[in-house]
Design a protein around this nucleic acid. Structure first.
Lengths: 107, 107
DNA sequence: ATTCTATGTCAGGTTTTCTGACACGCATGT
DNA sequence: ACATGCGTGTCAGAAAACCTGACATAGAAT
């Protein structure tokens, strides 16, 4: 059952590149982190590493900000969305559990 | 006709991360570039940026090196493979040309 | 025997990134 | 009106990451 994190989710991009990709300033990117909208990885040394998924998220954030939505609103929207995603994921797991129960586990 | 370079081909990863991902030393990575096996992008500033495709390529290279294959051999293998890929790509384009001729161009 | 390969390592220099602080215009709340 | 909070720019100083060029070397190729 390889979970296998695709390229899209691997945190390998540093802030300068993210800045170019999104058009956001480094200041903005760090600020959105302060506001808990984004969670880069912090390897030894202290630099920030982002994934392409993070880049997409940042572009969404940028759009909302442009529409005058505030960071704490964005955060709420995000946790709402995340919640339903989690629920769906749990539902999937439960169904899988049913299937396993029906047909038995193969080690 | 969006060409749209997927995440896999975007050159965004710096050498330190590539080193961790591949297990190769930075020295080795730079050397394989010197040997024309790999072609990172060089943005203003002079740093090197690699794609995930490059990372895969480097892992292939690492395996061959381990099998005692020399860099100039690897290079030959690579240009052989690239040549047939190019030919296939040309064939595709020609077929597309035929289709366009049959059905007429739009725009 | 000599040359080439592949890699380590070190020095010195430039670029990138980090944090923390101050400033400021604009919106929000009292 | 005034105080707060928001989002961002910018600057300083320090640390981390990267770059090039050079020297060294063990082992392979010629």
């Amino acid at each position: 059952m390889e979970s296998s994190l695709s390229y899209k989710d691997k945190k390998v991009i540093s802030i300068g590149v993210v800045s170019e990709l999104t058009g956001l300033s480094e200041r903005q990117i760090r600020y959105y982190e302060e506001r808990k909208l984004i969670f880069p990885e912090r390897p030894k040394g202290g630099s920030r590493k982002y994934s392409f998924a993070d880049v997409e998220l940042l572009m969404d954030i940028a759009n909302k900000i442009e529409d005058g939505v505030q960071t704490h609103e964005i955060k709420k929207e995000m946790s709402r969305k995340k919640k339903t995603e989690d629920e769906q994921s749990i539902r999937k797991k439960m169904i899988q559990g049913q299937i396993n129960a029906q047909f038995g586990l193969r080690k």
